[in-house]
Design a protein around this nucleic acid. Structure first.
Lengths: 234, 234
DNA sequence: ACGCAAAGATGCAGGCTCTGCAAAAAGTAC
DNA sequence: GTACTTTTTGCAGAGCCTGCATCTTTGCGT
């Protein structure tokens, strides 16, 4: 009924995306100004030009509007993991895929800076955001399994909700290693980003990122007192 | 008003703990039976024998009552990390500390099984639980820093909320390595537990746990098709 | 034992979040 | 233009959460 239209995706679809984007933009702008917990659904909806009831047609919970940014970045990482040269070890393939994505995000700085500002001032949202990425982690584990070749043809782009029966089935089909690699990789990126955010002035993100994955590849040995993977940084 | 009383911690304190425990127990029991999202604060409070208003004197949000189990386990892990033999590499010290704690938890099986059942059926809570452990991660990173000797005398038992100015300061004082080790270690435990939960019948948790940390210590190399971490235990 | 001060529990008012339902409005196809 | 589908909206209602005033319990000195 729909997608036969390459030029225009259909007025309906376009309007929906516009509304969603307007809600997210309004929410982030208001949150940056007044603090996320003082921004009501009514205020967001009014700023976006829709009714409060409509807000809940787009988001299951008020907080979701603050964590639904970059929902497609993880999909691109998975694609890159599959496209990586076959001779690369899994950890390196993952590292490179993530590096590419992070570089692109670094260019949209402004939006992400506002967003991270909001998250910093509302730890509650940070926690929620973290949890929201659990589904990404599972999907990434599947992709890694497929790349390694240990997996069955699990590839599919739809992601069932956490805890669904389907989700259950997919977990069973995965080995320990892909899941571990996915979890550890995501944790490493998170730590690298946080570490860099705290000392933006002193360090280049690329260096932090490289050092982080060097630690991992080395098996996390105790760092020498001077510097872990190079000259010390303070 | 303090600790001078070894025999009894004071009636007041005991009552508070009892109330908190009663609320948690009632909540988990009700959630296991009816599903977490159908359990109201009123129902929990009534089952625990207190008023609904009192519930919010103990928990900031209704969902918190479902994720506040084992809040003191992480403190014991930190203690064990510090107490570990000095010649142990950090990763191993962390592994052993976690293993001890997990063994103790394995004995309270019943409560934890119920709890994990609740989390499984309510992914929303799982996400929240994940985020709640962020503070633990930071504290663990500090402890690891102290053990390594790279840290200043940061030791203190009070944990400021995520995002507080104090939290900010403490993050700055930490190097990349301790934070990475803490994040990766916690992620590894989570994966091991999940992997084991999904195939409880086939595997012993100890084995899954050991294999997980072998992967880490080896630097996450691509597993050989046959056996993941080489020819088994050493 | 008595009474005082601190801490906790409770009730209540009120605002905000979120859901189901049915009617109105807007887009789509014929 | 008409009929069909999708989206938006208002409304009612349940539940979540907080601030405030009050009452009860506990800890402790005398």
């Amino acid at each position: 009924m729909t997608e036969g239209n390459p030029a225009g995706v259909g007025l309906r679809e376009r309007k929906k995306r516009a509304t969603r984007a307007a809600l997210v933009a309004a929410a982030v702008r208001l949150a940056a100004e007044h603090g996320a917990e003082h921004v009501t659904v009514d205020a967001i909806s009014e700023a976006a030009g829709v009714s409060a009831r409509t807000f809940f047609n787009y988001f299951d919970a008020r907080d979701d509007v603050f964590v639904m940014i970059g929902a497609d970045a993880s999909a691109r990482v998975r694609q890159a993991v599959l496209a990586a040269p076959a001779e690369l070890p899994p950890l390196q393939a993952l590292r490179d895929a993530m590096a590419t994505e992070l570089a692109e995000i670094e260019q949209q700085q402004e939006l992400w800076r506002l967003h991270s500002e909001v998250l910093r001032r509302s730890p509650h949202l940070l926690a929620r955001s973290l949890g929201a990425h659990m589904a990404d982690e599972l999907a990434l584990a599947e992709t890694l399994a497929e790349r390694i070749g240990a997996g069955s043809p699990l590839f599919s782009e739809d992601r069932p909700a956490l805890g669904s029966p389907d989700d259950e089935r997919r977990r069973r089909a995965l080995g320990l290693y892909p899941r571990l690699l996915a979890a550890v990789g995501i944790a490493a990126v998170r730590v690298a980003v946080e570490h860099w955010c705290v000392r933006q002035d002193e360090l280049a993100f690329v260096d932090v990122f490289r050092e982080t994955f060097e630690h991992l590849a080395a098996g996390l040995p105790a760092p020498s007192p001077a510097g872990p993977a190079g000259p010390a940084d303070r």
